[in-house]
Design a protein around this nucleic acid. Structure first.
Lengths: 128, 128
DNA sequence: CAAACTAGTGCCTAATTGCCACCAGGGACC
DNA sequence: GGTCCCTGGTGGCAATTAGGCACTAGTTTG
């Protein structure tokens, strides 16, 4: 198969990196609720800077996952909406967000165990 | 709900960032096929550096998604294997990898359209 | 007349990623 | 017995990327 994310030069590797990047899962998830304006998205994606939001949305627009529509109304309105292609990736991303929310405590627990075990020197049997 | 990936201070946001980071989806996908040694993973994840592989695996180990077992055999063998928790995230990640492979061409097409439309100045109706 | 809202852009710094060299402890070659 | 290879790493430095903060510009509101 030509398309293999494990191949270095396969363009679909870049695509995986894109959908799996920091703000993409959140942005697409927010747009899953319906079309949203720039400001709405900024408020929803708590902690994102204007710059990163602009950049994320541009990338998504370029890749055909969202459309950007400008309404030259009084204070100027820009709406972002998922395309058909964008909607096709919502399920895996929603599953990922859901997993993060559901399994956070297990991970936090594992981290504590790991961080407490580490400074107490090498393990007896399987030394690091 | 306390656990909300859209909240800035929610720890599950970090977890989402972790599983959605550059090499995680590939590493977990590779380990889905069964336990693997460091070198095997390095060959499978074409293009990854030792450093990034070590870092990725350490993070996954710390977060309780993989186990690291050292066999002090002749040339020294280190095996990585998914934990129960690790296996719980394989499905969404596999779906994401699969999506990237299947929808690459649509995205490439959208990119071309976007890149060709852009330099030709502002669109007549909806100026940028 | 100043403030805030709209959707951004630009500069500069901080964090992340990647490249390359190096390490250690053996085995095999010659 | 010196040198090369294997194993699974670590550490330094450079380049890329992310983020904070300031600024724009037109309109509206106090």
């Amino acid at each position: 198969m030509i398309r293999d994310v494990y191949r270095k030069m396969c363009p679909c590797r870049d695509l995986l990196d894109m959908v799996a990047s920091k703000w993409t899962a959140l942005a697409i998830g927010a747009l899953e609720e319906g079309p949203k304006r720039f400001g709405e998205l900024k408020r929803r994606l708590e902690g994102i800077s204007q710059k990163m939001l602009t950049q994320t949305l541009r990338t998504l627009e370029r890749d055909g996952l969202v459309t950007r529509t400008v309404y030259p109304s009084v204070p100027l309105r820009v709406e972002y909406e998922l395309t058909e292609l964008g909607r096709s990736v919502t399920e895996p991303l929603a599953a990922l967000r859901s997993w993060a929310q559901q399994n956070y405590e297990s991970v936090a627990e594992a981290r504590e165990t790991f961080d407490n075990a580490e400074p107490l020197g090498l393990e007896p049997a399987t030394a690091r």
